[in-house]
Amino acid sequence: MLRPNSSDICACVSHTVSSSTQTAQYRRRLIDAGIIGEKRRGVVAFELPYFRAYLEHRL
C-alpha cells in the first residue's frame, strides 16, 4: 500500500536496489520520464494523474 507521504516513493526505490548510487540513478530516471517530480529539496511526488491509484490497485 502506498502512503500519502511523497518521500515513500524514494523509499520504495531504495528497497529494490542495493546502493544509494543506484537509488539516485532510478530516482533521476523517474524524474526525467515525468513519473515523479521534485517538489522541494529531498521531496518528490507522483506527477502522472491517477498513477498513485493505479499502483495501489495493482499492488
Rank of each mutant, 00 (worst) to 15 (best):
L2V: 09
L2I: 12
P4F: 04
N5L: 07
S6C: 11
S7N: 12
S7Y: 13
S7K: 15
D8T: 07
D8I: 05
I9C: 02
I9M: 07
I9E: 02
C10I: 04
C10W: 03
A11R: 09
C12G: 14
V13E: 00
V13S: 02
V13Y: 12
S14P: 02
S14D: 00
H15N: 14
H15C: 13
H15Q: 15
T16F: 13
V17K: 03
V17L: 06
S19A: 11
T21M: 14
T23W: 03
A24E: 13
A24I: 04
A24F: 00
Q25L: 14
Q25R: 14
R27K: 12
R28C: 12
R29Y: 02
R29A: 11
L30I: 12
D32V: 05
A33S: 01
G34W: 03
G34H: 04
I35M: 06
I35V: 08
I36G: 04
I36Q: 06
I36P: 01
G37E: 15
G37C: 14
E38L: 00
E38H: 05
K39E: 15
K39L: 13
K39W: 09
R40Y: 08
R40N: 12
R41D: 12
G42M: 08
V44A: 06
V44S: 02
A45V: 00
F46S: 03
F46R: 04
E47Q: 13
E47M: 11
L48Y: 10
P49E: 08
Y50V: 03
F51G: 05
F51A: 03
R52I: 09
A53S: 15
A53P: 09
Y54G: 01
L55G: 00
L55C: 04
H57E: 15
H57F: 13
R58N: 09
L59I: 08
L59V: 00
